[in-house]
Write a protein that binds this DNA or RNA. Structure first.
Lengths: 180, 180
DNA sequence: CAGGAAGTTCAGTAAATACTGAACAAAAAG
DNA sequence: CTTTTTGTTCAGTATTTACTGAACTTCCTG
């Protein structure tokens, strides 16, 4: 099972009795790890598997069919998950010239897109806090403390996170000294 | 149904045919909103309801029994959810002197606790990226780009987030000028 | 110490959600 | 134009997960 050429697809490696490789050298294991990781963020495990495979696949673009084969999932599932990941903005569809159909690959700015998603959650928290304050507008201020804190924290994050992303972009552009 | 005294509990407001108040003036509606909000973060809706009620309840501490009544949930569910929220670190148990049992209320530093949780996720992402790099350690560097980016982004966040939290603590301590 | 109120545990159920597989659609090859 | 390959849609199923309710435990009160 040579990893470099993703021979998983051509030879019947997928029928192997569950790889005897140590976990840290097993691509399937890595894919499952990403699946679990995605689950902790509320996304379906299969979406994580797709993303996980695209992180290590060779070439970096893979067709739906290839994904279905490698991940041993139904075509339907792959279709749904790629649509989801595309909508979230962390993978994209590429149609190579001459090649028959389209492929998926991880977007260059996948991580800033994911951060935007997290940002939306922060905004949602602030807004709910504000609705709560509206609800208690005639109450004594001590009763409002909990909601005010909730609003202020999230408003603060809301202003800071974009700055942090900017800093990251800068950092990436010219890695200062001993960056890997 | 007077909100100030939480008369929801004493009179049978809970049996009302679904409040005729406009949504922004309806505590039940607020509680449901927080429930949905929590669901987007992967936590059970009922946990969000409990937290939502504790955000607006008077007094700020509520007994399991009260929670069960107001939220129209089983005692078992309340027990599970308060345990979860306590474990996460965003509510705490308080035993008032003389009073018969214990109550729950939102912790003062609930939001920094929640941030810690998010932080843990960032760490998990970095670690998975590193395991991926280990897997591809003998591959040409161009193949590693996706995983390197994933690791670097999260390592960056990992270093920045604590600083941001520090800044928030400072900001809260002495709100500069026209803070609410 | 008995009786009762309040809370927790846990087995079972209801509801939500991920996933499959078959039918359909679109496109390329023969 | 037919056949084959590839992808999508969608109805149905399986699995997971939240939630309930009954039994048990703990702790007050008389």
């Amino acid at each position: 099972m040579t990893l470099t050429s993703n021979s998983l697809i051509s030879d019947e490696a997928i029928e192997q009795p569950r790889s005897a490789l140590p976990p840290q050298a097993d691509p399937q294991h890595f894919v499952e790890e990403v699946g679990l990781l995605f689950e902790t963020t509320g996304l379906p495990r299969m979406a994580g598997r797709v993303f996980g495979w695209l992180l290590i696949s060779n070439p970096p673009h893979q067709s739906p069919g290839e994904l279905a084969t490698v991940l041993q999932a139904s075509k339907g599932s792959i279709s749904t998950m790629t649509r989801l990941l595309e909508q979230i903005g962390i993978i994209e569809r590429v149609s190579l010239p001459g090649q028959r159909r389209d492929y998926f690959r991880i977007k260059l700015n996948a991580w800033s897109e994911l951060s935007k998603r997290r940002m939306e959650q922060v905004v949602a928290f602030r807004k709910v806090a504000e609705r709560g304050l509206l609800l208690l507008q005639d109450e004594p201020s001590e009763r409002l403390q909990r909601l005010q804190e909730m609003r202020d924290v999230h408003a603060f994050f809301e202003s800071e996170l974009p700055l942090m992303l900017d800093r990251w972009e800068q950092f990436r552009a010219q890695p200062p000294a001993d960056s890997p």
